[in-house]
């Protein structure tokens, strides 16, 4: 919501109901929520790559990437890792519990620019959460995109998020889906092993000028993945990544997410291109 149309206090969260939750792995859980006010639930619009501020009274607020797609309106989905007070409290919530959510915030992926091009989505670990939104959006609007690739890396089979969902995607014929784990102690893993960059061999015939890359994963992943993408001669502004920062407001005021002096991640991010990374210092 921009200044000219803003009516209500942007800092006051909207009551939302937890519809269902289940574990994605040992410390990441899936949370499906809906605005208590049904009209608001259905009219809530957002872009893949945007985030919401989740509020727990008595603890505070923190930003969380949206994992659902706006092409399936009504329900919002998050994948949340338990790391501190805030997420401990979120993990205490039970189905039908009410809590506060406000947003969406951030720029999101430039969907309109990506449309008509091929799309390669590269996710590692928790990076699957925001990129799942983009992936589902592209699959729900399949005719508007060229070839779609998913390269997914997890540390171990047990740590992999959205396992069944992505396993099922292997069967789709409108998606090139490649899954890998760094290491498999179970001996049961049916797909690739090794770091996610190993999967680049599957991208033999991409057309660099007409392909967008979307990358999200642990900080260490970016360096190696970007190096591989650059080898394919992909223009820097077509390499997109979504980044994490501390945030207290989400609306460009509190200052905590500032990068390079004046870039507020909550307004101009969290999706940045590799060109942004090169000229805005301190991004990754």
């Amino acid at each position: 919501m921009k200044a000219e149309t803003q009516l209500q206090n942007p800092y006051e969260p909207e009551p939302m109901r937890l519809i269902r939750r289940y574990p994605l792995n040992e410390d990441v859980h899936f949370f499906q929520v809906r605005a208590v006010d049904m009209e608001k639930a259905l009219s809530l619009n957002y872009l893949p790559g945007q985030f919401m501020m989740i509020s727990i009274n008595g603890i505070g607020e923190a930003p969380f990437s949206i994992s659902s797609t706006p092409s399936r309106p009504g329900l919002l989905e998050f994948g949340i890792r338990k790391v501190g007070n805030m997420t401990n409290r979120i993990f205490q919530l039970k189905e039908n519990g009410i809590f506060g959510v406000r947003g969406p915030y951030g720029n999101g992926f430039p969907i309109e620019k990506i449309k008509g091009n091929d799309l390669v989505i590269i996710m590692g670990g928790l990076g699957a959460v925001p990129l799942r939104s983009l992936l589902l959006y592209a699959l729900d609007n399949r005719d508007q995109f060229g070839k779609i690739y998913l390269l997914h890396g997890a540390r171990t089979p047990d740590e992999m998020l959205f396992r069944n969902e992505f396993f099922n995607m292997m069967k789709r014929d409108d998606l090139f889906c490649h899954l890998t784990v760094d290491q498999d102690d179970t001996g049961q893993w049916p797909f690739e092993t090794g770091v996610v960059t190993r999967l680049f061999g599957k991208l033999a015939h991409i057309d660099p000028k007409n392909t967008y890359f979307a990358v999200c994963g642990p900080p260490v992943m970016y360096k190696f993945v970007v190096a591989e993408i650059l080898k394919l001669n992909v223009p820097k502004h077509q390499i997109l990544m979504t980044l994490e920062r501390r945030m207290k407001c989400g609306v460009g005021k509190c200052g905590h997410c500032i990068i390079g002096g004046y870039i507020y991640t909550c307004l101009e991010g969290p999706v940045f291109s590799y060109w942004d990374v090169l000229h805005m210092k301190g991004l990754i």
Partner: peptide, 29 residues
């Protein structure tokens, strides 16, 4: 720049959300 801190009454059910000046010089910023 500011920080947002919730103050709760004993018992946890009631309280207030407060805003306080913060500084980019502080470690936790």
């Amino acid at each position: 720049c500011f920080n947002v801190i919730d103050e709760v009454d004993i018992g946890g059910g009631t309280g207030e959300r407060t805003r306080r000046w913060d500084s980019c010089m502080f470690r936790e910023y």
